[in-house]
C-alpha cells in the first residue's frame, strides 16, 4: 500500500459524521470533565466537615456556654421538659447505650466469630457461598424492621419467658442489636481469616495440628487485627443504631438495674424528642450536642478500626 492513504490518519479527516463530532466535543471538554471529577473527589471531605459543621452550628448555643458539662456528663436526670428547671444529664442515656451495646456484643462477638470460622475454615464451597449470601441479605434488613421485630415479636416472648412487666427493655434491644451486628462481624472477620496465607495452615497441618488447634493457635493470632476491626465495626454499628433501639428498648430514661429494665439510648432520645422541639430552643440545642457526642464516638471507633487494620499491613512481613 502506498503511504498516501495512510497519511490520512495523521491529518484530521474531512468527514463530519455525528459520531466524530461527538467524540471531538467530548475530548474538547476533557479539561472540564477532569475538573468536575476532581471536585467530586474533594466532595467527600466537604461532606464530612459539613456534617460536623452543621451539627455543631445547631447545637452551638448550648455547646458553647449553655450547658454545664459536669451535669451533662454525670447526672442521670434527663428532664428537658421540666418547667421548673430543665435538666440535661445524659448519664442514664449513656448507660443505656452502653448496656444495650454491651449485651449485644456479648452475644454477637462469639457467635459472629464462630460463624466466620465455620464459613472460612470448615464449610464446603457451596455451603460457603450460600451462607455468605444469606448473611449479606441479613445485613440488608432495615433497622426499622428490626425494631418492629423487637417490639411486636420479641417483646411478648420476653414477657412470657421472664415474667417481666414490659417486653421492651435492655434484653430485647440487646438481642436485636446482636442479630443486627452479627452480619458485619461475620463478613469482616471472614475476610480477615481468609487473608491469612494458606501456608500458615499447611505448616500447622504438617505438624499434626487439628483444625480446632489451627483456628485457635494459628489463625486467631495471625488475623487478630482484622478480627479486632470486625468487632470494632460491630460495636460502631450497634452504638449508632437508632430505629431498632428506639422501638425495642422502651422509653424509660433510667439507669438500668436489670436486663429487663427499659432504657433509652442516646440515639433513641434524639429520634424520640427532636420532633417536639423547635429550632433555637434549649432542648433542641442539647439534642444536637448529644449528636456531636455520638459523632465523635463513631469517629473514634472508626479511626481505631482503620488503624488496627492498617496495623496488619504495616506489621506483616511475608
Amino acid at each position: 500500500m502506498s503511504s498516501a492513504d495512510i497519511d490520512s490518519v495523521q491529518a484530521p479527516p474531512r468527514s463530519r459524521s455525528p459520531l466524530r463530532v461527538f467524540h471531538m466535543l467530548v475530548d474538547l471538554c476533557e479539561p472540564l470533565v477532569e475538573w468536575i471529577i476532581r471536585i467530586c473527589g474533594w466532595s467527600a471531605i466537604l461532606f464530612v466537615f459539613a456534617i460536623f459543621f452543621f451539627v455543631i452550628r445547631e447545637g452551638s448555643e448550648m455547646l458553647f456556654g449553655g450547658i454545664d458539662f459536669k451535669e451533662f456528663l454525670t447526672s442521670p436526670n434527663w428532664r428537658p421538659d421540666s418547667v421548673v428547671r430543665p435538666q440535661y444529664g445524659i448519664l442514664a442515656l449513656l448507660t443505656g447505650t452502653v448496656a444495650v451495646t454491651g449485651l449485644a456484643m456479648l452475644i454477637a462477638v462469639p457467635l459472629g466469630l464462630g460463624a466466620a470460622v465455620y464459613v472460612s475454615e470448615f464449610a464446603g464451597p457451596k455451603t460457603k457461598e450460600t451462607l455468605k449470601v444469606i448473611i449479606e441479605l441479613l445485613a440488608a434488613i432495615p433497622s426499622v424492621v428490626w425494631g418492629f421485630i423487637g417490639y411486636i415479636v420479641l417483646g411478648p416472648i420476653i414477657i412470657w419467658l421472664t415474667g417481666a412487666p414490659v417486653g421492651i427493655n435492655v434484653l430485647n434491644g440487646g438481642i436485636i442489636l446482636a442479630l443486627m451486628s452479627v452480619p458485619i462481624i461475620v463478613s469482616v472477620a471472614e475476610d480477615a481469616l481468609r487473608a491469612v496465607p494458606d501456608s500458615y495452615r499447611e505448616a500447622a497441618l504438617a505438624l499434626g495440628a487439628s483444625r480446632w488447634e489451627i483456628v485457635l493457635r494459628v489463625l486467631f493470632p495471625a488475623a487478630k487485627n482484622g478480627l479486632l476491626a470486625a468487632v470494632l465495626l460491630g460495636v460502631g454499628r450497634a452504638i449508632g443504631e437508632t430505629m431498632a433501639v428506639l422501638m425495642a428498648t422502651g422509653h424509660a430514661v433510667q439507669i438500668p438495674k436489670s436486663l429487663v429494665d427499659p432504657v433509652r439510648t442516646m440515639t433513641a432520645t434524639i429520634a424520640a424528642e427532636l420532633g417536639e422541639t423547635v429550632s433555637g430552643e434549649e432542648h433542641y440545642g442539647v439534642l444536637f450536642v448529644i449528636g456531636i457526642v455520638l459523632f465523635v464516638i463513631a469517629f473514634a471507633i472508626n479511626l481505631t478500626a482503620d488503624l488496627v487494620v492498617k496495623g496488619i499491613r504495616g506489621g506483616q512481613h511475608d
Binding site: 467527600a44 471531605i45 451539627v55 437508632t242 440515639t267 427532636l274 449528636g291 469517629f299 472508626n302
Partner: peptide, 27 residues
Amino acid sequence: INLAVMNLAGVPSIVHALFGVGAFVHF
C-alpha cells in the same frame, strides 16, 4: 479524602438526620 470517606460511612444515621435538619431544612 480516604479518611473522610471512611468516616462518612461510619456516621450514625441519626446524626445524618441532624445534619439534614441543620444543612438542608434550615440552612
